[in-house]
Design a protein around this nucleic acid. Structure first.
Lengths: 136, 136
DNA sequence: ATGTATGCAAAACATTTGCACCTGG
DNA sequence: CCAGGTGCAAATGTTTTGCATACAT
């Protein structure tokens, strides 16, 4: 069960946390807004308020269970952490999200930071475009 | 005068637009939030409301006069467009913003998009870290 | 003149917080 | 039992919008 995952993250095992975790694990696509999660809870007939969803997602992020992203700039998106870093491609037309990882870009990025005297901590890299289906 | 720039952008020359444009041109650092711009207008004793600032900045963005960025995810930041694409380094401690452009990353990015069947339209690439001064 | 821009206040939206009650360990 | 978690509603912060008035051309 996901009890273990919560405990391992140092979080008490409560119903809202279990439900939210399950939703994130079963999500397809994997990228959900807080509202998406809340709606799915409603669909399942759960009595969980939006405030709790935000609180739980924030705790999950702090615990490293999920990653928070910021597509388009006004709405946070959450995805279950894979443990491996990756960046994103977002389709401007249908919203499809793909993931990518490019060693060369990562290396080069580190290089750029050094050139500017920066100690690199993290980065956001999102490519916006049209996915294959939306180009026709 | 900046009248020309506004006219060239297809915008009527009005006092708020002139004032906002001047503030952006004189800004140092070059990256300002809508609120920053609004405060500077107040300091100058101008009678311009926040709503107008947002409207003007949005129009400037549509006209290509300014670029809108999204540092940290909850606050939009505007900078006068240089005409040349660049990405950003942001100091997590003092907020300093630097700009960078790396041909290799740009090329590679295009490559990544193609591999995923995406037609690349734009991208956000922000490196967060500690600037030289904030590492000591 | 006339269509567009502005100012104000109110609305919209995503997210956070205060507080009384409930619950997990 | 008791600290921490939750639900609700109200607050927050940013940005947008409706509408009557003012302005640029």
């Amino acid at each position: 069960m996901q009890d273990q995952e919560l405990r391992a993250a140092g979080l008490k095992v409560t119903l809202p946390r279990l439900k939210v975790l399950k939703i994130l694990e079963q999500a397809n696509p994997r990228h959900l807004t807080a509202e998406d999660v809340y709606k799915k809870l409603l669909e399942q007939g759960e009595e969980i308020g939006p405030a709790t969803v935000y609180r739980v997602l924030t705790q999950f992020e702090e615990a490293g269970l999920v990653d928070r992203l910021n597509f388009d700039g006004n709405r946070a998106v959450y995805e279950l952490s894979t443990g491996e870093h990756h960046d994103h491609l977002v389709c401007l037309s249908c919203g499809t999200v793909s993931e990518f990882y490019d060693d060369l870009i990562e290396t080069r990025q580190q290089h750029v930071a050094e050139q500017h005297g920066f100690l690199l901590k993290e980065h956001d890299h999102i490519i916006y475009g049209l996915c294959q289906n939306c180009q026709s």
